[in-house]
Design a protein around this nucleic acid. Sequence first.
DNA 1: TGTCACATGTTATATCATTACGCAATTATG
DNA 2: CATAATTGCGTAATGATATAACATGTGACA
Lengths: 132, 132
Amino acid sequence: MSLHSPVDLTKNQTLVYGALADAQGPLSAYTILDRLRDDGFRAPLQVYRALEKLLEFGMVHRLESLNAFVACRHPDCGEHETIAFTICEQCGKVAEIADDRLMEHLDTLARVDAFQPRKTTVELRGICASCQ
Amino acid sequence: MSLHSPVDLTKNQTLVYGALADAQGPLSAYTILDRLRDDGFRAPLQVYRALEKLLEFGMVHRLESLNAFVACRHPDCGEHETIAFTICEQCGKVAEIADDRLMEHLDTLARVDAFQPRKTTVELRGICASCQ
DNA sequence: TGTCACATGTTATATCATTACGCAATTATG
DNA sequence: CATAATTGCGTAATGATATAACATGTGACA
């Protein structure tokens, strides 16, 4: 049981996670599908079902503003419910920012309205350091 | 020229904004289309083109995690580039949170990585006060 | 062995968004 | 005024993202 495999992944989950881990940046579900054709993938649902589990395990993140997915690169991300992303609109590079104080800040804002957050999305789209 | 119309809206923009302003919560582009059939709307593009302008004017926000749109209800939202949203997964209600310190916090986090944010998405999905 | 939970395979369909093309209205300007 | 440029509009087609519905396989285990 490796650090990134708190559970044993099924064949399809392993393939999908592998595709994301190999990728430079985020991939759409259909891109993953195309890359796994040779491994026997035939339908979107094979990808979406694996992604659903991987998201549940915290091994993959969904980028809402891109409708795409990335493998989690942050070692201890299991400890951060809230993860912020920077997304470079030039080169497509995605970075994770895990910041406890940001999470607290968002919690505080939610508390003002008595709102109980279940899943928080923070995505900064712009230009990364390398592309300036 | 009303408070909410810093520019003169075209007929289609007015109709789309009206549909969103009348709605209780966020609407998808296709829901807007359906509601404007009687006003002569026939194709998605009529909605998307109007939305594009309304987003530009700051009169409408896009909720990335829902692929849906809401009329801006925050009077001075033009002064806040970053707006956070709470989205109730029970009743669908959406509220805007404009908080300058949150914006500064995000700017600070971005600066660490020399990232230049252009558009920031903050969406808290969970349960609102009324639904608990 | 039976059955339960879970993963998978397949087809079809639903939902969200854009491309491409042509025309009409408006406006800037020589 | 003429006309070029810009902007908005209408329509058809297509592309991109995601799920529903139903059938089959597979391993755990009472």
